[in-house]
């Protein structure tokens, strides 16, 4: 670069250019090249994100009236299992009593529900994404130190509200976006 500089300064026809103007041209060229390269790189990088059809995989409806008390069903939503558990009175009581306990990811049991068409909370039907917040394994129901869920992969214990209580997982089991279509049908997604 410095070589060309000296050469150009002693150009044969004698008229010398303003060095700062030439620097500007080099910088502008370099910047334009960088912008161009970046623009080409962007689609190459972003193509790896979820494709339109994957994102559109959308929502499912689940009939919760078929889930008997003390039972749980799994439904597949966006490639992940959704747990719908019909909790027993004892489980609800245990979950609500633990609202005051020392929680890793504090959340009241009542905050883990969406309102029914009547506008109140149905604490019997717990809807969660059945994926451990540690590394994504599927926790086993009615197991663990808190009789909620237990993840066999690395030993995370969840309570009857699906809140993390012990083990390496950082967060409570996720509540998906869902709503009540009617008293007996929910729509997830």
């Amino acid at each position: 670069m410095s070589d060309t500089h000296t050469q150009e300064n002693t150009h044969e026809d004698g008229h010398s250019e303003d060095p700062s103007r030439r620097d500007f041209i080099y910088i502008a060229t370099g910047a334009a090249a960088a912008v161009g390269a970046g623009s080409v790189a962007w689609p190459l990088v972003s193509q790896m994100g979820a494709a339109a059809d994957t994102r559109a995989a959308g929502s499912i409806e689940i009939d919760i009236s078929k889930v008997a008390e003390g039972q749980q069903i799994k439904a597949l939503w966006r490639g992940k299992p959704v747990f719908v558990r019909h909790r027993t009175a004892a489980e609800i009581a245990a979950a609500e009593a633990d609202d005051a306990a020392d929680l890793i990811d504090p959340q009241a049991d009542a905050d883990r529900f969406v309102p029914t068409p009547e506008g109140n909370i149905n604490p019997a039907i717990l809807v969660m994404v059945g994926v451990c917040t540690h590394f994504g394994c599927i926790p086993v129901g009615e197991a663990g130190d808190f009789n909620g869920w237990y993840c066999p992969c690395h030993g995370s214990h969840y309570d009857t509200s699906g809140r993390i209580r012990k083990g390496p997982a950082p967060k409570n089991l996720e509540i998906p976006t869902y709503s009540y279509v009617s008293d007996s049908v929910i729509k997830v997604g």
Binding site: M48, G49, A50, T54, R78, V131, H134, F135, G136, C137
Partner: peptide
């Protein structure tokens, strides 16, 4: 699932990064 979950642990960008790696919400 477990290994790509490692990336989900990175603060702030983790979840988007994981989705970008998987090309979806799950493997």
């Amino acid at each position: 699932t477990v290994i790509t979950g490692f990336f989900g642990a990175i603060p702030v960008v983790g979840e988007s990064l994981q989705q970008w790696l998987l090309g979806g919400y799950s493997v």
